[in-house]
Design a protein around this nucleic acid. Structure first.
Length: 309
DNA sequence: CTTTTCTCCTGTATGC
DNA sequence: TGCATACAGGAGAAAA
């Protein structure tokens, strides 16, 4: 279940193994993997071929490869002085998506939905996704309303048009915990529901929401607007901390030739305090962790440390 | 506008 | 053994 730390591990893998290379071809299987591309998967394949991957970026759980302009196209139409609009290949891993960097000749894995080959004939990039909640899309880059700027040039970096509604994640310069807490304070929904709302703060999924709330000692169903602003800020601090800890461990189990969304699995087995621990003792007070149904999924919490009040 | 519910998908585990 | 059901859950559309 890729959340921010897992997606960041994948992004780093793309920086190491894909950025700087030129795409020879993209082959999509089925029509589901290409998201909201009205001209169809064949058109997406055509538009990506020949483009160079110039950067790999991320906001929350969204990942995108910035594509350079097609040099052949520029030469063919020299009077087009203005740069053709910058585009990115946006990837969302959904529930079970993986990006694998492998030799092009290795057997096609089960549930492979996309294969990217490169002009240097090196390792290929595969998108593999069992539950098909993930997908790819080719999206125009537009100015980022959050004004994220390149550290060196000072120029604003573009954001894919389909990602503008996603709030900055806790590791971005544009992240403003005071503003996020103020936003949360206006909401009557349960704290966990708000933590999972990617328009409020991005990158948090079911696992890290439960872990952050366990660390903060707050029940998942507590309404946001009854929590104090310091309490909300404390929760946001735990969100950031728990994801940073996962990232530390996920980054170390990363195989050089294998960009794997399960990179943080070692973290899951060792360091989780609430998620998936129904019936096991709370590591703070010893009481049994309980599981409750919430939003068509499970919430795990300690009934003593995390009072409903 | 805010908030909640529904739907998409398939491998694995469990119950009868 | 075989079939039915629950479960995992991100996110966007639809409904309230």
């Amino acid at each position: 279940m890729p959340e921010l730390p897992e997606v960041e591990v994948v992004r780093r893998g793309l920086v190491d193994h894909v950025v700087g290379r030129t795409i020879e071809s993209l082959a999509l299987s089925g029509s589901r993997v290409a998201r909201r591309h009205l001209a169809g998967p064949g058109d997406l394949e055509d538009r990506v071929a020949g483009r160079t991957v110039v950067a790999a970026r991320r906001r929350g759980k969204y990942l995108w490869m910035v594509l350079g302009t097609q040099s052949a196209h520029d030469q063919a139409v020299p009077d087009r002085c203005e740069q053709s609009e910058a585009e990115a290949l946006v990837v969302h891993l959904g529930m079970s998506g993986q990006l694998l960097v492998q030799d092009p000749d290795t057997p096609v894995p089960r549930h492979q939905h996309a294969l990217v080959t490169f002009t240097d004939a090196g390792h290929a990039l595969r998108f593999v996704d069992q539950r098909t909640f993930g997908g790819l899309s080719l999206v125009e880059l537009i100015p980022d309303p959050h004004q994220r700027r390149d550290a060196r040039t000072g120029d604003p970096e573009g954001i894919p048009e389909s990602v503008v509604h996603i709030a900055p994640d806790p590791f971005e310069p544009a992240y403003d915990p005071m503003a996020v807490a103020a936003n949360m304070k206006r909401r009557s929904s349960a704290i966990k529901r708000v933590l999972l709302d990617q328009r409020v703060v991005s990158g948090v999924g079911n696992i890290y929401a439960d872990e952050a709330l366990w660390r903060a000692g707050v029940h998942p169903l507590r309404p946001c607007d009854v929590l104090t602003r310091p309490a909300l800020l404390r929760i946001l601090g735990h969100v950031r901390e728990v994801m940073a800890a996962a990232l530390d461990q996920g980054g170390t189990s990363f195989d050089a030739l294998y960009v794997n969304v399960n990179g943080a699995s070692g973290y899951f087995s060792r360091s989780l305090h609430a998620y998936g621990r129904e019936g096991e003792p709370c590591q703070r007070c010893g009481n049994a962790i309980v599981r409750e149904r919430f939003m068509n999924r499970s919430s795990y919490s300690c009934p003593v440390c995390q009072r409903k009040r």
